[in-house]
């Protein structure tokens, strides 16, 4: 437990640091107002917008803990959005059925990934790269290459922009996803099994773990999360945009997991760390957009560069490089 907290010190510090910068340069970020019974403000906005990345990152944490990786999550998001939109517009199915079918298709995509990796033995990065390319193609086929718009004000749109308990619905979904994930991994032995496989697959197999099934599970779980993320995204913009839904989001998710202290080599994972990682990335996005330098906004084209610099700094801090430097200097003195 103490170790877990120690590992989180730098990510938390980075998050606090970002918020402090905001507090100085742009106090408006912290203002919260209640409009029409809903809490609004930049902080709420950060949490709202973080939902898709957060959902994906929860799954990605488990995948990375098994020493795997899933590049297909962005494409799976576009599939779920496209399927849901097409079903809504072209059939008279009730919303629950639409959601269930969309998520079922995403779940199958995850099983596909898992089988390629666990049974056929393709490296995770290659196996999921296949679906990363094919998935967006499938979504484009489903939506006939068009952006399908969904009527605003429908129940579906409520998922993306509605309000529940005074907060955006997306926040409720995020909280439920976090609690579910933590329950699944920490109140069963799945978490232990995932960490064991990531730590030493051979030893896990010799100890009687069902390595293949667990691998399939983590990819399926991730694809399911990506499915929900895709629905949130489509509901938020009230359209299924197969070309852009979830684009590059797999990279944000991997970054969030790494910032949160889960090693790409597999083994120990840290869900709380991942959540902090997501918040850092999302706060950073908002900060860059809102920070004023000399009365002007930072040009949007700087966004990606600044983001990568901050991520690099957090990773360096975490890898103890600085601690080692300090230590060796002291040793010389």
């Amino acid at each position: 437990m103490l170790d877990a907290i120690k590992k989180l010190i730098w990510p938390i510090a980075a998050l606090v640091f970002l918020l402090v910068i905001n507090a100085i340069s742009n106090p408006a970020l912290f203002s919260l107002k209640i409009v029409d019974g809903q809490l609004t403000g930049s902080l709420v906005d950060i949490l709202d917008r973080a939902a898709p990345v957060l959902l994906i990152s929860l799954g990605m944490t488990l995948v990375i803990a098994t020493a795997g990786i899933d590049l297909s999550v962005g494409s799976v998001m576009s599939i779920s959005g496209a399927v849901a939109a097409v079903l809504l517009i072209q059939t008279d199915w009730a919303l629950p059925y639409v959601l269930i079918v969309s998520l079922l298709i995403c779940t199958m995509a995850g099983i596909w990934n898992g089988i390629l990796i666990a049974y056929i033995g393709i490296q995770p990065i290659v196996a999921t790269l296949i679906l990363m390319v094919a998935g967006r193609g499938i979504a484009q086929l489903v939506s006939d290459g068009q952006i399908i718009t969904i009527p605003e004000g429908s129940t579906f749109a409520f998922i993306g922009s509605g309000c529940f308990l005074g907060l955006p619905v997306t926040i409720t979904i995020s909280v439920i996803a976090i609690i579910t994930t933590i329950t699944i991994v920490r109140y069963t032995s799945l978490g232990l099994f995932i960490e064991a496989i990531g730590g030493n697959e051979k030893a896990s197999y010799y100890s009687g773990l069902n390595v293949r099934t667990i691998r399939i599970f983590v990819y399926t779980f991730t694809a399911f999360c990506a499915g929900i993320a895709g629905i949130i995204y489509a509901a938020d913009i009230t359209a299924a945009d197969s070309n852009n839904a979830g684009l590059y989001l797999e990279l944000d998710a991997i970054l969030a997991v790494v910032i949160g202290g889960t090693s790409l080599m597999g083994g120990r994972f840290n869900i709380v760390g991942t959540i902090i990682g997501v918040l850092i990335i999302q706060t950073l996005n908002t900060t860059i957009l809102m920070t004023q330098v000399g009365g002007h906004n930072i040009p949007a084209e700087w966004n990606l560069i600044i983001k990568s610099i901050v991520v690099l700094i957090v990773c360096l801090l975490q890898s103890n490089i600085l601690a080692h430097l300090k230590f060796s200097r002291r040793a010389i003195a």
Binding site: T188, S189, L190, L192, F193, E195, A196, G198, G199, N200, K202, A203, S204, Y206, S207, G208, L209, N210, I214, G267, R268
Partner: peptide, 25 residues
């Protein structure tokens, strides 16, 4: 190579096979 799971604690290494035998649930 095939015995220890280095990251995990002594406790987790000890219960691993028993837990795998009992199942994840």
């Amino acid at each position: 190579d095939a015995g220890i799971i280095p990251d995990l604690s002594i406790r987790e290494n000890i219960i691993l096979a028993l837990q795998a035998h009992k199942g994840w649930i």
